[in-house]
Amino acid sequence: MKTLAELQAIREAMKDKVSLRSGNQGVRVVVGMATCGIAAGARPVLSTFVEEVSKQGLSDKVTVTQTGCIGICQYEPVVEVFDGDKEKVTYVKMNAEKAKRVVEEHLKGGNVVHEYTIGESKI
């Protein structure tokens, strides 16, 4: 059974690595989580981003956040990536597998996965 004591251990373990988050300097991944996004499958997309960013050791550089309706419901799940002054990248019709690839290639490798972007979408 899970206990609150385990949280105590997490707290101890995190003492050493006090947040290195660099304010707003890093990359921001925004997942649309309104009714339209949720119904289209945004929850596993979000959780994949959260897990993979942490697994790949990108937590200091990348923050994952949720937002409401972005306004293009037919393209949901929609994910936007903001990186400093660079143009925003909009990924559409996402799923957990695609999210994994975006973390690997875009967030880690620095290369936009063009085939998932709204510009490449055939609708």
Binding site: M33, R43, P44, L46, S47, V50, V64, T65, Q66
Partner: peptide
Amino acid sequence: GTAVTLIQG
């Protein structure tokens, strides 16, 4: 999954 998503958000 819903609980985690709400807390994360």
